[in-house]
């Protein structure tokens, strides 16, 4: 059982829980740090981005903010912070159902042998700010809606353009969000934007691994909680021979891990803690996924060579 297989199992389990949990009476609350999309009928929890834009977040009115409403909102934020403190970016790399969809598309591309459209790392760094702008939008627009400045249909603005809302409900038979909505100009505008972005994302996710995660505000928000996150990717710089395996194995093509020579913290903001780099690294102890001080999984020469892990034929390529 290699880490890659384990991650596959956890991803598919996460998919079932987040997408169909509600049908078994399971509900993880309104602050789930991954794309448990509330627009999926019978979902197993509510993605916190909706809560952030809704009445337990920036969308709550002044009346509610004064009393219990604020306590409820802070309560849900505490739940979110606790789950991120515990699992950190595992929510993105190991549990998020939308992440799994992207991995399916990439696996299809690999199977067909289509060349991956890799984004050069300087360009990737320049795209890094997009997710923080989206996060800012999530904080700015809802209060304007509640205050009545913006039309009511601007409610949940990010959900309005999130490809999760159009693609995830398909797995529960709901095609509504792939349709144009003529109710009014605002809903029409949002639905056209959503469908256009979904088209672009589908192509992007097929041609490049985890394309959407480059722009995901939830990844940005989770990364902002890095100081309190217990789970972290750590490197022992002076055991790294610079072979570049980590850069090739990384779905986000992060170069910070490969380039780091001084500090032991290589948890950059695009990193999803999927531990592909730790698997591919041939130097002992050079990379490790750590929970506080405990090394959950460290790089090992034997593992990279295929001796480690009890799977006899260790497939390094995906």
């Amino acid at each position: 059982m290699t880490v890659r297989n384990l991650r596959g199992i956890v991803q598919h389990a996460g998919f079932i829980v987040m997408m169909y949990g509600g049908r078994f009476g399971l509900h993880l609350g309104s602050a789930v740090p991954c794309f448990a999309c509330p627009f999926v009928p019978g979902c197993g929890g509510f993605c916190y981005l909706m809560g952030l834009q809704g009445y337990i977040g920036f969308g709550m009115g002044a009346a509610v903010a004064s009393g219990m409403g604020l306590v409820t909102a802070l309560g849900w934020f505490a739940v979110f912070a606790a789950s991120v403190a515990l699992l950190g970016k595992l929510w993105c790399g190991w549990i998020c159902p939308f992440g799994l969809i992207q991995d399916w598309l990439s696996a299809l591309r690999r199977h067909l042998g289509v060349r991956e459209r890799s984004i050069p790392y300087p360009v990737m760094r320049r795209l890094a700010w997009v997710k923080y702008v989206l996060l800012a939008g999530i904080a700015i627009i809802p209060p304007l809606v509640t205050a009545g400045i913006l039309h009511e249909d601007f409610y949940l603005p990010f959900c309005g353009i999130c490809p999760g809302k159009s693609l995830l409900p398909l797995f529960a038979g709901e095609t509504r969000y792939l349709a144009l909505n003529y109710d009014n100009l605002v809903t029409l505008g949002f639905s056209v934007a959503l469908i256009a972005i979904t088209g672009a994302m589908l192509v992007g996710m097929f041609l490049k691994d985890r394309f959407f995660c480059i722009f995901c505000p939830l990844l940005a928000f989770i990364h902002m909680l890095k100081p309190v996150t217990a789970l972290r990717l750590a490197k022992t710089p002076d055991t790294c021979v610079g072979c570049g395996n980590c850069r090739r194995a990384c779905p986000m093509e992060i170069e910070a891990v490969y380039r780091e020579r001084a500090s032991s913290d290589v948890q950059s903001d695009e990193c999803l803690d999927c531990a592909a780099c730790v698997e591919a690294c041939p130097s002992d102890f050079a990379l490790a996924l750590k929970f506080l001080k405990v090394k959950l999984f460290r790089s090992s020469r034997n593992y990279a060579a295929g001796i480690g892990g009890n799977s006899k034929k260790n497939e390094l390529s995906r």
Binding site: R115, R117, T175, R176, L178, A179, L180, N181, Y182, D183, S191, V192, I195, A196, I197, T198, G199, A200, L202, V203, G204, L207
Partner: peptide, 28 residues
């Protein structure tokens, strides 16, 4: 569900996919 048009939506979707694919091929 009254005012939604799935066919129009799918048209926009395929249009955007074609445009994105063309852009991706050229950028690649």
């Amino acid at each position: 569900y009254g005012k939604i048009d799935l066919k129009g939506g799918l048209a926009v979707l395929s249009g955007s996919m074609l445009v994105s694919a063309a852009l991706a091929m050229r950028a690649g």
